[in-house]
Structure formats: structure tokens, C-alpha cells
Amino acid sequence: MDSFWSVIFSTDFAFSVLRVTTPILLAALGALISNKAGIVNIGMEGTMLTGALTGVIVSAYTGSAWVGLLGAVMSGILLSAVLAYFTLKIKTHIILGGIAINMFASGGTVFILYMVSGDKGTSTSLQSKVLPNLHIPLLQDIPVLGPILSGHNVLTYISLLAVAGVYYLLKRTPLGLQLRSVGENPQAAQSVGISVVKIQTIALLLSGFFASLGGAFMSMGYLSLFTRDMTAGRGWIAIAAEALGGGSTVGTFVASLIFGATNAMANALQILKIPSELVATFPYAATVIGLLVYAIAETRRKKKKNS
């Protein structure tokens, strides 16, 4: 038991929680934005994967990690634009649209990888770039906090800033207000001249933006190359984190950290011979329980109102 706690309370562990949380958090913020506008984008996994591959390819061809990141983001936005066109314009069911995005990405990325590199498994033959890690002066010298918070990939810092940004966007900006109004009462939004389709399109594009950032982190930060199916379900975890977070920015952040921590704990648990596979299911079970509690409360509330 001692060894377990010594691992959990090490700065290395806290560091790795933040690292593992980064892609989940970024995608979860994306899921949050689209859900707030009343559309469930389950294409997060596919969008992440596409972003991861595009980042690698573009950075390899331009020699710049930053241009690669830009490429990744553009690919995520483009994919979401396709989804928006089909679901908002020609009314493909949003869930099926999301499934299509995921199907496209899971095979499509391998297809493109093969076309570009001649390999179906990894992008080792491509000289792709990695986004830098930042050592923050002053902060890195503080004991305990320094080793935890300093030295992360730039996207990890961006993901933390994004939490504040999304919070501000949803709570304090005109776009955020309109976005939430569209999700909550589209007729009300329409009656004051807000275009529901336009706002939902923006929301989908933003969700694609964040998902692809998460994907870029996977291939240009977490690892330094693309491997087939490398997001390994993180897009779905992000959707779960958003649900567990109860649709609030802070909640989504905390839930993402929980998922990140359970992922990071896997190693610590191996030491103790506690099966990490089972521990990994806890956050999902928590999400189901959370949804159930919420649904029961809703049912009660409605009943009360009627009697």
C-alpha cells in the first residue's frame, strides 16, 4: 500500500495527470460547446484522429510544428463543417452524422497515412515535428508546484487557458449568451433575430477546433508520431467527461481531471496488482450514476410541478 501512495503523492504522478488530461480536456471543452448549443457531436473521436494525422503530415512537409498545428486545427474545423452542412442543412441525423465522421476517420486516417508514408501503422518515415515543452521561469523553481506545473507541452498550457477561455466565452460574451439561448430555447433566440443554424454551425466548428487541438497533442506532444487509432477512445472519454461535468465548464474540467487521473493511475495500480482495466471503468460508471441521479431528480421535479 505504501508504494501505491508514494506513487500517487509524487510530483511525477501529478505531472502525468495533467499530461494525460490534456487531450481529454480539450475535446471535452469542444463537446461542451456544441452541447450547449443543443447539438450532440459524437464525432469527437474521429475529429481528434484526423487532427492528429494532419498535424503530423503538415509539420513533416513544412518543417514547422506550428504550421502543423494550424493544419491540424484546419482539418478539425473542415471536418466539422462537413458535419454541420449535413446535419444542419440537409438534416442528416446528428448522431448518425457523428458516427459517419468516426467511421471516416478510423479508416480514412490509415488510408491517407499509407498514401503519404507507405506505412499503415505509424508515421515513423515522416520527419514530423513536435510542439515544444515550456519550462516556466520562476515557477519551475518552486518546490512541489514547479515539477508539477512546469515543463509541460505548450498544448497542456493552452488546454488550461482554454478552460478559462471557454468559461468566459459561454458566460460573458455575446456569442456565449446566444449559443446557450439556442440550446435552451431556440424559439426565443429566433424571435430576437438570432439564426439558430448559424449559431449551431459556429458551435460545431468550435467543437471541431478543440477536438483537433486534442488530436494534435496526441501526435505532436504526447507522442512524436502518428499511430493508427492513436486516440484510443479519448474522444468518447471527452463526451463522458462533459456529461459527468453536468454541462458546466468547471465541472467538465474537474471530470476531465478525474478521467485523466484514473488513466495515470493505471501504472501506480499495476504496482499494487489492482487491475487498472477495472479502475478505468469507474469514471464511466460514475457518469452513468450521475445521469441516473439527474434523470430521477428531473422526473420528480416534473411530477411535483404537475400535482
Binding site: P174, L177, Q178, R180, S181, E184, N185, Q187, A188, A189, S191, V192, G193, I194
Partner: peptide, 18 residues
């Protein structure tokens, strides 16, 4: 009513013309 329930009165007032 064309109102967003979770918003404040002021937020509903300025929606679309913030």
C-alpha cells in the same frame, strides 16, 4: 413566452443586441 429560463432578466433583455 420567448424567454430563456436559465438566463437573468437582463440577459434575456439584451439577447441578440448585447
Amino acid at each position: 413566452f420567448m424567454l430563456v429560463p436559465s438566463f437573468t432578466v437582463a440577459e434575456n433583455m439584451v439577447l441578440g443586441m448585447e
